[in-house]
């Protein structure tokens, strides 16, 4: 299952990239290669996604780009500057939302924004104005005086986002911005991100939700074990699967045998066994389901469950690794 996207777009650097990594590598104590020779470039105004399962190296990549993790080798650049050589300038240009709630518990919501502005050299009146403006814009004004521990997860995430842009960063790094949020809060956060993007904000976000990557990102880098597996727009990535339909078949018995059997199904391009089911990739979806059942049962399998969808970014990941994103 070779995928062509793996080389071409990844190694082609973008001119005027605002974020760039060159053979970026981090080896943690022992020998964990958390990030392994990563080459990425992100252009101004883009929403760029790093998609990968737990432990893929997303947070470590963001950590290196935001000066908190020192690369073992390779370069991390923002706005053309090496962040290891120019941490101060780099910090002035970026905003960061971490994976967990890092709001200052000793301060109110409003104070969190105000003092963030002060850390970045804003005058008191500027920081005051900016804090109130952003709370208004993120529909948090009624929580201005609230304590951090009194916020819901979704609100805390919005406050973190508001705080990260107080100093008007050119580049925003969001590490799993919607992890642990309920669907409604997730949608609310997506709205805010879209709004920021239409105002011209460059955003790099990490996620292990394929929907998030598909919905929000112009381009997605799929990572696993610290390595870049593929990089392209969600549409092109899905095209790379080479099928327009994915059928999931859950059945009793030896799934590998079932997968072999379904490979000969008419229109099938390939199959994979993932997560207790067989995925069959095919061209053309009309009337496929009953025929799949016939085909499987003809070979002596009992089908327990069946579903059909278009290929997703998860299909791409399965194609590349043989595993799904949750494993």
């Amino acid at each position: 299952m070779a995928v062509e996207t793996a080389e071409a777009p990844a190694s082609r650097p973008i001119e005027n990239a605002v974020i760039q990594t060159r053979a970026l590598t981090k080896v943690f104590a022992g020998s964990i290669r958390a990030v392994d020779g990563l080459d990425l470039s992100v252009s101004e105004g883009e929403i760029f996604g790093l998609l990968g399962p737990n432990g893929a190296g997303k947070t470590t990549t963001v950590g290196m780009l935001t000066t908190r993790v020192l690369p073992t080798s390779g370069d991390a650049l923002v706005a053309g500057m090496n962040v290891v050589e120019n941490p101060n300038a780099a910090k002035q240009l970026i905003g960061v939302v971490s994976q967990s709630n890092t709001l200052d518990r000793s301060l109110s919501v409003w104070d969190n924004l105000y003092f963030h502005g002060r850390y970045f050299g804003m005058s008191a009146p500027d920081a005051r104005g900016r804090a109130s403006e952003l709370l208004e814009r993120f529909r948090l004004s009624d929580r201005a005086a609230a304590e951090i521990d009194a916020l819901s997860g979704g609100m805390a995430q919005r406050v973190m986002l508001a705080r990260s842009i107080v100093h008007r960063p050119r580049i925003l790094f969001l590490d799993e911005p919607t992890a642990g949020l309920d669907p409604q809060s997730r949608l609310a956060l997506w709205d805010v991100l879209s709004e920021l993007h239409s105002a011209g904000q460059t955003i790099l976000l990490t996620t292990h939700y394929m929907e998030e990557a598909e919905q929000l990102c112009h381009r997605v880098a799929i990572m696993d074990h610290g390595k870049l597996l593929a990089l392209d727009s969600p549409t092109r990535l899905k095209e790379s699967v080479g099928a327009d339909t994915e059928v999931r078949v859950a059945a009793d018995g030896d799934l590998e045998k079932l997968a072999d059997c379904l490979r000969s199904f008419e229109g099938a391009t390939h199959t994979a066994v993932v997560d207790e089911s067989v995925r069959v990739y095919l061209r053309g979806s009309a009337g496929v389901l009953p025929r799949v059942v016939d085909h499987a049962e003809g070979a002596g399998f009992t089908v327990k469950d069946l579903s059909l969808s278009e290929p997703t970014l998860e299909s791409v990941f399965i194609n590349l690794t043989g595993r799904d994103l949750r494993e």
Partner: peptide, 26 residues
């Protein structure tokens, strides 16, 4: 708009001093 008034890069020294005072104030 986010983009129209982006932060300028200030000299490391004065940015550091401001950040220091900001934290002391906090």
């Amino acid at each position: 708009s986010v983009s129209t008034r982006l932060a300028e890069i200030r000299p490391a020294r004065s940015a550091s001093i401001d950040a220091f005072w900001g934290m002391l104030l906090r």
